[in-house]
Amino acid sequence: MQLRRREFGLLAAGALAAPYVVRAQPINLAALHEAARKEGELTWYTVPQTSEVAEKMGRTFSTRYPGVKVNVVRTTAQVAFQRLNQDLKAGTPNCDVFTSTDLAHYVDLKGRNLLLKYLPAAVARQDKRVQNMDPDAYFHASSCFMMGLIYNTQKVQAAAAPKSWNDLLDAKWSGAALVAHPAYSGAAGAWCIEMRKLFGEGWFAKLAAAKAHVSRSTIDAVTTVISGEASISAGPMSLAARSASRGNPVATLAPKEGPVLILSPSAIMANTRRPNASRLFMEWLLGSEDTERISVEEFSVPLRANAKPAPGVLGLSDASPLLAPTPPQMVAQIPKVIELWRDAFGV
């Protein structure tokens, strides 16, 4: 990844810093819908949702705006970014809207003038603490979740469950913990940055010595804990809560150091062939009643101001302390934590 580091200073100090002033102009959604209908479809590369939820979102959008189909392509963060760059190299504008969990992707794309500048009116309806991703309005927060500790309730009693991130090193969890690889998962990369801040660079070697299993995606963390192949994991609390609501043996807790906030930006690609459909989708994705409802239904963290998550799910105002790497930290430190990880785990 070739990054223009002089661009970093243009970014906000962090996802939860004081917001910039939102000055999006009112938009005529009916007129935008009519223009989008003429384009007929858009393709959405997305990372943070499961395939099931992403497809549900695509169908819901098309129901809300008939005549505009969403082609959903869901994969892990680094695989999605690799695919996007392959498209760009080939001159094939497959992706219209790009949603990832890795902020570094957006700094890189913005630095190469590959994003379309657009400030959706929907941003003004979001919680002010997530309005400050890019003051130049090339990318915006479209979803978030929190990485916390999850465990299999059939194998681990609540009283014995880990209470600290450092408990992943405890000898009683040797060979029983699972963590995602930061080279594949943007969320895992953010988590690794925070673990390095808390415990130092040597912590990853200790985690490897504790025989922690490694997966590609944080989504795998939940499914592997549910199956019993792992007893505990660092994973997405929302997905685990959703799985628990369906009767699966999984529970979550916020570590005493705090969960890690994962903000997922979305942006329109500059080479899009469907600019109106893409703008309409961004308006819907960032601040619609549909996305708020789906967030609650799927036990995610809604971004609309004053929205309440599902019972038992931590909202933006509920988690204290809350760990959140800044955009510059994500860009500068992801390569380092990947290097530390590979040195520790050999993969």
Rank of each mutant, 00 (worst) to 15 (best):
A176Y: 13
S217W: 03
T75K: 10
M57T: 05
R23G: 09
Q157W: 10
R273D: 04
L261Q: 03
K117P: 06
G14H: 03
N166Q: 14
V313P: 09
K38Q: 13
A221M: 15
L239F: 11
R274I: 06
R342L: 00
T60N: 03
Q329P: 00
Q333L: 15
R293C: 03
Y151K: 11
H213V: 04
K211M: 00
A205W: 10
P26N: 10
V22G: 08
R5N: 14
N248I: 01
D136E: 15
E194K: 11
R59L: 09
V250T: 06
S215L: 06
G228C: 04
L3T: 15
S215H: 01
E52T: 07
A30Q: 14
P335F: 02
D134A: 05
R64A: 13
N94W: 07
A277G: 11
L16K: 07
P327K: 10
Y20I: 15
A177K: 02
G14K: 02
T101P: 03
G247E: 08
F199R: 04
R246L: 15
A90N: 11
S317G: 10
G258I: 00
V331D: 02
A209T: 12
P135C: 06
L11C: 06
I338S: 02
P135T: 04
D87T: 07
I338P: 02
R293Y: 05
Q86D: 11
P328A: 05
L169D: 13
K155Q: 12
A13I: 13
A244R: 05
V347N: 15
S233M: 09
A251P: 07
D127E: 12
V337P: 00
A31N: 02
R279E: 01
N276I: 03
H105M: 06
E229W: 07
A54F: 04
L314F: 13
S245L: 05
V68C: 06
N306S: 12
R125N: 05
Q82H: 10
E34G: 00
A183C: 04
P321Q: 12
A188N: 00
A171L: 15
L103T: 08
R196M: 14
A160H: 12
K211Y: 00
I150E: 02
L103Y: 11
A212S: 15
L3Q: 13
A324H: 03
V22H: 01
N306R: 15
Q2S: 13
M195N: 09
S295C: 09
R274Q: 11
D318Y: 14
Q154R: 12
I193V: 04
N271S: 13
Q329V: 09
I232K: 08
S217H: 01
R37Q: 15
K256Y: 11
S300F: 05
G228V: 07
V301L: 11
E41H: 12
E289D: 14
R279V: 01
A251S: 10
D290W: 10
A171R: 14
A221P: 02
A205R: 14
R37F: 00
P26V: 06
L286T: 12
R342F: 00
L286I: 08
V222P: 08
